[in-house]
Design a protein around this nucleic acid. Sequence first.
DNA 1: CGGTGGCATCAGTAGCCACTGATGTGAGAG
DNA 2: CTCTCACATCAGTGGCTACTGATGCCACCG
Lengths: 102, 102
Amino acid sequence: MMTSVDTELIRVLGDPLRLRIVTLLARETLCTSHLVEETGAKQTNLSNHLKVLREAGVVETEPCGRFTYYRLRPEVIAQLADQFADLAESARNAAENKRACP
Amino acid sequence: MMTSVDTELIRVLGDPLRLRIVTLLARETLCTSHLVEETGAKQTNLSNHLKVLREAGVVETEPCGRFTYYRLRPEVIAQLADQFADLAESARNAAENKRACP
DNA sequence: CGGTGGCATCAGTAGCCACTGATGTGAGAG
DNA sequence: CTCTCACATCAGTGGCTACTGATGCCACCG
C-alpha cells in the first residue's frame, strides 16, 4: 500500500535514450550492436547507459559468445506501474483533503 | 496499446524533492507554506519545483486568498501507471523474442 | 492606506551527468 | 598464435539544472 515510489529508478528511466532502450527491449531481447543500429547512438554511450540500467536492476545481461544480450526485467517495470497506480488511487481518495491555511 | 511512455513526465518526477512533493500532495491538497514546513526546503526552491510540476501538468493550482493550494492530478499519474503496465506486459509477452546475432 | 505575509520571478553559482575519443579485455575466426 | 570484432572502462568536457539570495507582486489586515 504505502509503497513510496523509488526515486532512483525513475531518475534512471528519466533519460530519453535510456527510456528508448527500455522501450526497444520491451519488444525483444537485443545485444549492444542492435541497439547501436536502432538508436544511432555511439557504442560507448550505449554501454554507459546499459551499465546504469543494469545497476538499477532494470535489465539483465546474457552473454552469448562474443555478444551480450540485454533483456528487460518486466517485474521491475510492473512494480513501478503498481507504485504509480497506488499513488494515483491515493490521490483520488484524498481529493477533498485540504489542510487549513496556517 | 503502444503508448510509449512520456519521457518528459518521468524526467520531471525523477527529482527527489519533486517526487516528495507529489507524494505529499497525493495525501492532501496543500499550499506552499505547508510544503515548506513538510520538506524543509526553501520557499524559492519549492516554488521553482512547483512551477515545473505545474508546467508538466502534474499538479494544478487553486488560489485561496493569499494562499495558493496545489492539488495533484490523479489522471496524469494513473496514465503513467498504465503506460508502465503496458510496457511491462509487452516485455512479458516478448520475453522469448531474441534477434539473431548480426 | 501603509504594513505584512504568501508566493513568484530573476540572476548567479556549483555540481552533476550525458556524451565523446582513446584504450583495455576477452572470445572467435583464420 | 595473431587478428578481428563486440563490448567494457577510463578520463575529459560541455551543458543542463537544482539550489540560493535578492527582489517584485498581490491580497489581506490594521
